[in-house]
Write a protein that binds this DNA or RNA. Structure first.
Lengths: 155, 155
DNA sequence: TGTCAAGTTTAGAATTACTATAATCTGATG
DNA sequence: CATCAGATTATAGTAATTCTAAACTTGACA
């Protein structure tokens, strides 16, 4: 049971750093109520086995291509949104015109490099938002985003 | 000198609340190095004489239409960006897919109503960002944006 | 005040990021 | 291993924005 058509690598009985990498991802998908299809497994591997990442749909699609994983761009978009709804990814809005997803789900904020369009995490404990005002009547706060925009010195 | 083809209103010798409203705007444009054209004057009036506003290009364009000001959408986009570059407007990113501009240039942050896509100002002194991390090497902070996303209670 | 170069405006085409559609495929279940 | 809801895909469609090239204004100067 469990023989996937993903390019020959990481035979699960041999993996050293991470015991049973496939089933971890499998469990994550199952837990989220998502059928572990070939494409979702492959994208999940790309997303979650590369440490903390900030990427757009196009970036992940390119990643998949170079990893010899055949997925349509439409599926990449679908998958990113599903993972987001399932709480596996965070959506970051810093740039109208492209949507970033963040694999780091812990409480944290971001640096945004305006010229390059890149993002970097700021650990949660390095930013403190004191004194938030009360939410307007009948509303509740769903999230507080802090974006620290930076540029090269003297620009 | 100074007879504009803007629909009959606010004759400058008669304005009560605001002495010489035209020349104020005129000066603002001149100060920003922008030629005070009919379109820019009209858009500036719409933008800056309505108190603090959050609007998109399409909204301002609609505003102009209903005020009987003939401006192309392209000009609205151009003008918003020029005003932004000139420091007369602030650009707010809260929603990929549309760009908002804010006429309130004072130090402040925003509530964002996720379902309606509306924005509301939070006065600068009601949010306190303590403990910002140092900017990465060779970078300087250009701005810190705090967006408090809210939704109807129990959604 | 007429002329002209430079700056502006415009309609419409192009681009970009994304979403919808409808046909085809796949994997969980019986 | 047949079935079929759910997933994937190519492709068309959409919305916001930018580009383009031509036409129009403006301000300066003769």
């Amino acid at each position: 049971m469990m023989k996937m058509h993903i390019p020959h690598d990481t035979p699960s009985h041999d993996a050293r750093q991470d015991a049973r990498p496939f089933s971890q991802i499998l469990d994550r998908l199952r837990g989220a109520g998502l059928r572990p299809t070939r494409q979702r497994m492959a994208l999940a591997k790309l997303l979650f086995e590369g440490g903390d990442r900030h990427l757009t749909a196009e970036m992940l699609h390119a990643d998949a291509q170079s990893a010899n994983v055949r997925v349509s761009l439409a599926t990449v978009y679908n998958t990113l949104h599903q993972f987001h709804r399932a709480g596996l990814l965070r959506e970051i809005v810093v740039d109208s015109q492209r949507t970033y997803f963040d694999t780091n789900m812990s409480d944290h904020h971001h640096f945004y490099f305006d010229q390059s369009g890149e993002l970097a995490d700021i650990p949660g404990d390095q930013v403190e938002v004191a004194a938030l005002p009360a939410a307007p009547d009948g509303m509740e706060v769903s999230r507080v985003d802090v974006v620290v925009r930076v540029r090269p010195q003297g620009a």
